[in-house]
Computed example of a mutant assay.
Amino acid sequence: MTKAPTVEDVARVAGVSRQTVSNVVNTPGIVREATRLRVEAAIAELGYRPHAAARRLRTRRSSTIGIHLDPYAGGIAGVVLDRFVHALTERASERDMRVLLYAARTAEEEIDRLGDLLEGGEVDAVVVTGTFHGDPRTGWLNERGLPFVSFGRPWGEDDVAAPAHLWVDVDGAAGTRAATEHLLAGGARRVAFLGWPAGSGTGDERERGWRESVGAAAGPRWVVEDNVALARDVLAEGLARDPEVDGIVCASDSLAIGAHLAAAVAGRADIPVIGFDNTPAAEALGLSSVEQLPERVASGALDLLMGESGTVVAPRPATAGAAHVLVEPRLVVR
C-alpha cells in the first residue's frame, strides 16, 4: 500500500519549512503569494490531505460550521435552501470543514441552540439564513464574537457602505428586472407583478426590480401570501378585473404556478408568467423562472468566512464595500 504523503513530503517538494506548509494549510493569508502558490502546487501534486482530527486537537478548533435547518413546511419553497445547504456542505468538505445542521422553530429558540453550540465549542462559525428587519440572531452573534455570515442581507439603512455584518445574497431586483425586460422585449404592453405583502425585505427587493424596469407598461401589483391556491384565486379575480394584462412577473415559483393555473382556467393560457427560484415544479410546467444559483451563494459565504482558499475560519472584516457577496441570478426562459 502506498504511504500517504506527509507535511514533510510537501515541504521537501516545495522547498520550504514544515511550518510554512502548516501556515499555508491553516492560515494562508500570512504567507507570501509566491510561496503559497508553490506549496499549494506541491500539495496538489502529492495529493496531500491534512488529518482533520489531528488538526482539531492541535488547533483547538472544531473545523465545523453550523447552519440552521428550517422546519419542513411542505410545498416547493424550500428547494433553494436545500440546494444551498448541499452546496455549502460539499464546498466546506473541500476545505476540510464539516457542516453541522441544527433545528429551531423560532429566532429565540435558535439563539438558545446557538448558545449551546458556542458553550460546547462545537462550531467555529455559523451561517444564518432567512434574515429579516430587526433580526435578534445577528445582534446576539455580534455581541458574543462568534464568526458568522448571513444568507440574506442585514436590512439596515445601507448594507454596502455600512454593513452590520458579513452577508451574501441573491440580487432579487436584478432577477425581476431581467424577467420584466424579457416580457417587454417579447411585446408585452401591460405587465403585472404578483408579490408578497409589503415589509418582506426579499419580496420588496423583487418588486423593486419590476417597478424600475416596467415603465409605462406597468400593470397592477397583486398581493398574496406564498401559496399556490391563494395565488390562483387572486389571479382569477385580478384577470377578470384587468383583462388587458399580458405578462406577469412573480416573486416566487409558488405564486407563478398559481398564476399559471388561473390564466389557464380563464382561457388565457397564452399569458407569459415568470417565476422566481427555478424549482423543479416550474420546470415541469414549462414556466420561465429566475435561477438563484445557490451554489455560488455557498461559495461566497465560505469566501467571506475563510478567504478564497483558506481552510480555517478567518472572517473578512465587515468594512464598507467588502463585507458582502451579491450574486446576480440568471433568467431561465422556457
Rank of each mutant, 00 (worst) to 15 (best):
residue 36 R to M: 03
residue 130 G to I: 05
residue 334 R to L: 08
residue 175 G to S: 04
residue 67 I to V: 15
residue 183 L to I: 02
residue 283 E to S: 14
residue 157 E to G: 15
residue 124 D to R: 12
residue 200 S to Y: 08
residue 16 V to Y: 03
residue 304 L to G: 01
residue 201 G to E: 00
residue 18 R to A: 12
residue 17 S to K: 13
residue 175 G to R: 08
residue 83 R to Y: 04
residue 8 E to F: 12
residue 195 G to I: 02
residue 58 R to N: 10
residue 164 A to Q: 13
residue 18 R to K: 14
residue 282 A to H: 02
residue 133 H to W: 10
residue 298 A to E: 01
residue 176 T to H: 06
residue 11 A to Y: 03
residue 261 L to K: 05
residue 205 E to I: 07
residue 193 F to V: 10
residue 266 A to D: 08
residue 249 V to P: 12
residue 109 E to Q: 15
residue 183 L to Q: 09
residue 299 S to N: 08
residue 270 D to G: 11
residue 95 R to S: 00
residue 53 A to H: 10
residue 31 V to H: 01
residue 13 V to H: 09
residue 150 S to T: 15
residue 303 D to H: 08
residue 282 A to D: 01
residue 9 D to Q: 14
residue 150 S to F: 05
residue 205 E to S: 13
residue 177 R to P: 06
residue 8 E to Q: 15
residue 136 P to G: 05
residue 98 R to Q: 15
residue 38 R to S: 14
residue 318 A to E: 13
residue 258 G to H: 05
residue 166 L to H: 04
residue 298 A to T: 05
residue 318 A to M: 13
residue 301 A to P: 00
residue 46 L to T: 07
residue 40 E to R: 11
residue 315 P to R: 08
residue 138 T to W: 03
residue 31 V to G: 02
residue 117 L to R: 06
residue 294 P to A: 01
residue 64 T to R: 11
residue 94 E to D: 14
residue 175 G to Y: 02
